[in-house]
């Protein structure tokens, strides 16, 4: 209900299927935002995929496989981010990452433990 499926395909310079970039918008809906634990979960998930995964917050980009970079987004609850995946398993990676946001990184809103 939150992460609109807003997929688009950009042809990379090579035009090859391997370089397909897919993207979608996600919204941070857990109350505490993208703090250390969600960033850890996200980076762990991203590292399972071959594709390059980036999260974009306006002009700022972060490597989805790096907790340090994800934390620099300082994405509070309500922030809209774009997830971009480039590589052979880009679509599957995007789905997996989207569902982490949708399921609030397994955090309850009442859960104030960060």
């Amino acid at each position: 209900m939150t992460a609109k499926s807003n997929e688009s395909i950009h042809d990379a310079a090579s035009g090859g299927l391997q370089m397909e970039t897919v993207s979608r918008e996600v919204i941070v809906i857990n109350a505490a935002g993208l703090h250390a634990r969600p960033a850890d979960l996200l980076a762990r998930e991203a590292r399972k995929w071959q594709s390059r995964i980036e999260l974009v917050n306006d002009a700022q980009r972060a490597d989805g496989k790096s907790i340090l970079e994800l934390l620099t987004l300082a994405a509070e609850s309500g922030t809209r981010l774009v997830v971009e995946a480039t590589g052979p398993d880009a679509r599957e990676a995007l789905d997996a990452i989207g569902s982490l946001f949708e399921t609030r990184f397994n955090e309850r809103d009442s859960d104030q433990k960060s």
């Binding site: 935002g33 703090h35 250390a36 934390l71 300082a74 509070e76 960060s114």
Partner: peptide, 16 residues
């Protein structure tokens, strides 16, 4: 929670 996030942001950005 926002202050906590901004502190983490500062720490992680500088430590790059």
């Amino acid at each position: 929670p926002g202050d906590h996030l901004r502190a983490l942001e500062n720490i992680s950005r500088q430590l790059r």
